[in-house]
């Protein structure tokens, strides 16, 4: 099976972290349900063109945080999450996406006040059902 994960070489975030974050995202959003099997470390490395050292690190982190579990000889599976952990992770993910967008805007020279205006506008537009930029 293939996971909808995309890693970017040009990101400032290390590849193992990108993998970790995206798997977390798939789990908390419910796209990967508890009990679902994950690809093997080697298969994921092949798909993402990274080394097994990198994917192993991502899996080990996810395992130590209780997201996944490796059963010797059977494979790696998604663990059931407690609902408060789930909320916490969701917030973490949204935070990191917003932070990235803010950094990008700052780089283009926007002030924080301007950013808030843009953010308010985006929220208004979405609520009015108008998703054009």
């Amino acid at each position: 099976m293939k996971l909808p994960i995309v890693v970017s070489d040009d990101s400032k975030e290390p590849i193992y972290y990108q993998i970790e974050l995206q798997i977390k995202r798939l789990i908390v959003s419910g796209q990967l349900q508890a009990g679902a099997a994950l690809p093997s470390i080697r298969a994921l490395s092949h798909d993402l063109s990274c080394s097994v050292i990198t994917t192993r690190r991502a899996y080990q982190d996810l395992e130590s945080k209780g997201f996944i579990e490796t059963v010797q000889g059977k494979g790696t599976f998604v663990q059931a999450l407690e609902s408060n952990t789930q909320d916490q992770i969701k917030e973490e993910i949204v935070y990191s996406i917003l932070k990235k967008a803010i950094e990008e805007s700052k780089w283009m020279g926007y002030s924080l006040t301007q950013l808030k205006e843009i953010c308010d506008k985006a929220i208004d537009d979405l609520e009015r059902g108008d998703d054009r930029p």
Partner: peptide, 8 residues
């Protein structure tokens, strides 16, 4: 070197 070390 490890392949992904290139990225760092």
């Amino acid at each position: 070197f490890e392949k992904d070390e290139i990225q760092n």
